[in-house]
Design a protein around this nucleic acid. Structure first.
Ligand SMILES: [Mn+2]
Ligand SMILES: [Mn+2]
Ligand SMILES: [Zn+2]
Ligand SMILES: [Zn+2]
Lengths: 141, 141
DNA sequence: TATAAAATTGTAATAATTACAATTATGGGA
DNA sequence: TCCCATAATTGTAATTATTACAATTTTATA
């Protein structure tokens, strides 16, 4: 049981009918290993060393593809950049306005089941619960 | 009972200790009259005719000020621009991925009372519940 | 191997936002 | 009322995230 990291990434892509190219596997692997809700640039910088030919455009296109196919979440919690999450299970997010970190939160969420359903006649495909404030680390620092 | 529009705007600003300059009142008035969750540019374009000397920078600064002081909400539901809401009461939002409109939703929200409280040790100052999908109008169109 | 389609790359363009210095408005003494 | 300090506004230039797009490379298939 348990995949080697790359295999988990490959499996994830296959299960979402995304062709597992070298770059896509590397990017998905990065998301799986880095639970920090990285930005496009975080992913790009994090992989540039091991894939010197990697293009920023590919990172943009790939993360967009992951989000469209449901293989990753695109978070819009931060007004100045988009962040990505390899964890697609239902959970909520907290953004620290002081340090910029995005934390996972397990908060009782009432209407997670609403996906695919309709709300006031609108067809829902995504739910995002965002909290903002000052994080524990910044409060204690 | 009931204010003239401008007076309601002035009252709102005063109650949040924001000095009611001509531009600030006009911008707050715009938010109160336009419940469409306008972008910075919407506000700027909407007021340019009546205030020809208005600067985009002022609109940016003012909406940021409103958000900081709690006189308006800054929504980050749309990845490509920020939107503002003169309605600061607890409610949730729906973004149509097709037409881009942002709708208000009244959804049972579990943890609205959490503002000013702490969650996992973090100090919460804002809560945003965002839903995305295709709106009723686009579905029927 | 030849060929077509798909993916990746690099650069240039776009568009939202911010920085900043100059100008204008405001309010409280003298 | 006039001066002056401070706050607010303006206009332009700079920054930065994101997108467009054409060229190149990779992949799959016949
Ligand atoms: Mn997460
Ligand atoms: Mn609203
Ligand atoms: Zn923090
Ligand atoms: Zn729509």
């Amino acid at each position: 049981m348990g995949f080697k990291h790359s295999d988990e990434a490959v499996e994830r892509l296959k299960s979402k009918s995304i062709k597992p190219s070298m770059q896509r596997v590397a990017i998905m692997d990065y998301l799986i290993l880095n639970r920090t809700h990285p930005s496009v640039d975080d992913v790009y910088k994090g992989l540039s060393a091991s894939i010197p030919t990697l293009s920023r455009t590919t990172v943009y296109n790939t993360l967009k593809l992951f989000s469209d196919k449901g293989a990753a979440l695109m978070l819009t919690i931060d007004e100045s950049r988009v962040n990505f999450d390899g964890d697609t299970s239902p959970h909520t997010h907290f953004l620290c306005k002081n340090c910029g970190k995005i934390y996972d939160l397990q908060v009782p969420s009432p209407v997670k089941e609403v996906i695919g359903m309709s709300l006031a006649g609108h067809q829902i495909s995504e739910i995002h619960y965002y909290y903002k404030g000052v994080c524990k680390a910044c409060l204690e620092g």
